[in-house]
Amino acid sequence: MNITLKLYASLSEFLPAGAVENTVQIEVPERCSLNEVIDRYRVPRRLAHLVLINGHFIEESQRDGPMLKEGDALAIWPPVAGG
């Protein structure tokens, strides 16, 4: 299935070729887990801190289960903060 992958801040370096505005369309297997996507693009798991599907935060404990649906937007940040 087709999903949108967005990697930001220091995770930008793990984006595949063709990404525009930190965003790229990717093909993933039907019941793939978040960790599978994270691992596939070599994002270190400890740096995948803010993991959002369509803007909703996903707990770390749920990253091994099938969470993605066709057309979802998966956005990932390392630990970040500001004011």
Binding site: K6, A9, S10, W77, V80, A81, G82
Partner: peptide
């Protein structure tokens, strides 16, 4: 995070 991107890292978040 903060030294590299500053607080502006939050815009996309």
């Amino acid at each position: 995070g903060l030294p590299t991107f500053g607080t502006q890292v939050l815009m996309n978040v």
